[in-house]
Amino acid sequence: MEVEIVESSDISVRFMLRDVDVAFANALRRIMISEVPIMAINEVVILNNTSPIYDEVLAHRLSLIPLKTDLDRFNLPEKCSCGGVGCPKCQVTFVLDVKAENTSKTVYSGDLSSSDPYVTPISDRFPIAKLASGQAILLEAYARLGRGRDGAKWQPVSACAYKYLPVLTVNSEACAHCGECVEACPRGAIALDDDSSLPYLKDIVKCNLCKACVEACELGALGLQADERSFIFYVESTGSLPAYRIVEKAAEILAEKCDGLIEELRGVLK
């Protein structure tokens, strides 16, 4: 197995995974989507809401705001020593206390005050509700760790996908260096080499294996195949965790699952 980072930022990471099976790549993808835990608001106690936004809509909007998550400091409620009742190790409390005095006012995610200085909305600019003058909202919200399989608000990734690595083969004797394949590529992934003027894959990320280049070559000098043991992953975080951390955590969870299986098997076979 070999990993190569193509591009990386806090919010997204694109990497190449070589010499693995489709099943492994897909297991990693599915764990990133549904098993890597993040924080999200999942309980709201509304004490006062005179805004035109209904209580349940308000709660739903709150739950969808991505919260910065520190996985090392928090437990899943079901695995916490408090038994899921709610303690500082598994729960963060938010308070929203806003009132529009003389003019209408937009309530932003920045108005939420958190009991934990690290666990805060990723942006202060999410509009939660709008108040006419005289209206008010007072509520308490509880954020807990959860997994994507239990609800989209706990899904740490927005886009999370992979594709096969494209491999372009050129028959250098048949190629007329005409550049038809370069013209035909709808995504501009192919270019002619400066020295040999043979076509090559300039951008493996852009190529989606449509084979327009192969069809455009009247001489049949081109071939485009998928390397079915190499994958280009694209993982985009919602902002709760850095993108690389999601991949890392997904791999840890996969390893944990395998360890669990080995232990079970040993128990059964004894």
Partner: peptide, 11 residues
């Protein structure tokens, strides 16, 4: 968030 992919957009 985006209805389809879940990316935060409201801000």
């Amino acid at each position: 968030r985006c209805f389809t992919c879940g990316a935060p957009i409201g801000d």
